[in-house]
């Protein structure tokens, strides 16, 4: 078994019209045993920038703490929030630093940049960036997520449409993955508000 499958996870980010959505499942397991069903995998970096960390939960939390620390240093020095592109480069640099002894997690970054332009990005565990225009996925359910997103995604969706699409893609994919599930956690971010929703899913 790969170490990435130890805790189980599913993550997606999608781009809509002047908005984006990022979603994850809520399960934390130790192999096949479920430990928690309200686990937070998506972290807020600042109001318009979110970070999802799939993979080994212990590494995800450590990495998140280091990233928050670095972001706060940036805020102190620059008196502004990081742009999503900058944050992605920071994550990539921190991961690549551990090229020969990596953190076992694969991040998903989603944010609104200048002029409310949505930005999404994922990386492998050593920081190889993949900048997609439409959607990115990560976690143990990534294979089924690729399929679901590939068929459900349409460009320029409005926030409500985007929410429905990302939720359906998430829920249908985690149903085919033993290691993730127990509902979902969805953030839809528009220039004016952040809408956070908790989804009901199968509980097996």
């Amino acid at each position: 078994m790969s170490i990435f499958e130890y805790n189980g996870s599913a993550l997606i980010a999608m781009v809509g019209k002047n908005c984006f959505a990022i979603a994850s499942d809520r399960r934390l397991g130790v192999q096949l045993q479920t430990i928690a069903t309200d686990f937070q995998r998506i972290y807020k970096v600042h109001d318009r920038l979110f970070l999802g960390l799939s993979g080994l939960a212990t590494d995800a939390q450590t990495l998140y703490q280091r990233l928050v620390f670095r972001h706060k240093l940036y805020q102190l020095r620059e008196e502004r929030d990081m742009k999503p592109e900058t944050f992605a480069s920071l994550v990539s640099a921190i991961l690549y630093e551990k090229r020969f002894g990596p953190y076992f997690c694969q991040p998903v970054i989603a944010g609104l940049g200048d002029e409310d332009k949505p930005f999404i990005c994922t990386m492998d565990s050593i920081g190889a960036k993949e900048l997609a225009k439409d959607f990115v996925v990560a976690g143990t359910a990534s294979e089924s997520l690729y399929g679901a997103c590939e068929s459900m995604f349409r460009p320029d969706m409005e926030p409500e449409d985007l929410f429905e699409t990302i939720s359906q893609a998430l829920l249908s994919s985690v149903d085919r993955d033993c290691l993730s599930g127990w509902g979902g956690h969805v953030y839809v971010v528009t220039p004016t508000e952040v809408k956070e929703r908790i989804l009901k899913g199968r509980m097996d």
Binding site: D47, R48, F163, E164, S167, Q168, L171, G183, P191, T192, E193, V194, K195, E196, R197, I198, L199, K200
Partner: peptide
């Protein structure tokens, strides 16, 4: 429609 258990809306400044 997807079943939503909880919604929290945070307006941005």
């Amino acid at each position: 429609k997807t079943e939503v258990l909880l919604t929290r809306i945070t307006p941005l400044k």
